[in-house]
C-alpha cells in the first residue's frame, strides 16, 4: 500500500481521536448529570482506542501491529464492565436521593 496514503489516514484518524478525547474531557468536566459523565468517560475511552488502533495501522508491513489491537480488545471489555459498575452506582445514588426527599430531614435536597 502507498505509504503517503497510510500516513494521511493516520493523521486524519489520530486528529479525530484527539478531538474525541478533548470533547470527552470537556463533557466530563462541565456536564452535571452522572449518566452523562459515564458517557463522557466512554467517549474518552473511544478516542484512546482510536489513537492506539491508528498507530497499529500505521505500523504495517503486511499486517497491522497486533499488540495494540490486543490491548484495545482487553480495554473494551474492561471499559464495559467499568461502565456497568458505574451505572449501578448511579442507580444507587439516585435511589438514595429519592428516599432522602421523603424523610423529614430531606429538605436540603430540594434546594435549587
Amino acid at each position: 500500500m502507498d505509504l503517503s496514503m497510510v500516513m494521511s489516514t493516520f493523521f486524519l484518524y489520530s486528529l479525530a481521536a484527539m478531538l474525541l478525547v478533548g470533547m470527552g474531557i470537556y463533557g466530563l468536566l462541565t456536564r452535571r448529570h452522572l449518566l452523562r459523565k459515564v458517557m463522557a468517560l466512554n467517549v474518552i475511552a473511544g478516542g484512546v482506542f482510536l489513537l492506539l488502533i491508528t498507530t497499529a495501522y500505521r505500523n504495517q508491513e503486511h499486517f497491522p501491529d497486533p499488540v495494540p489491537q490486543a490491548m484495545v480488545l482487553t480495554g473494551i471489555v474492561v471499559a464495559i464492565s467499568a461502565t456497568g459498575f458505574a451505572l449501578a452506582l448511579v442507580r444507587r445514588i439516585h435511589q438514595r436521593m429519592k428516599d432522602a426527599k421523603t424523610d423529614p430531614f430531606g429538605e436540603k435536597w430540594d434546594r435549587s
Partner: peptide, 25 residues
C-alpha cells in the same frame, strides 16, 4: 483500520451490551 477483532468486540459491546445498560439505567 484493519482491526476486525476489535470490530467484532465493538459490534457486540456497542450494539448490544452498552445499549442495554444505558437504556435500562
Amino acid at each position: 483500520l484493519q482491526a476486525p477483532d476489535i470490530a467484532l468486540a465493538e459490534a457486540a459491546v456497542g450494539a448490544g451490551l452498552a445499549g442495554v445498560l444505558l437504556l435500562g439505567t
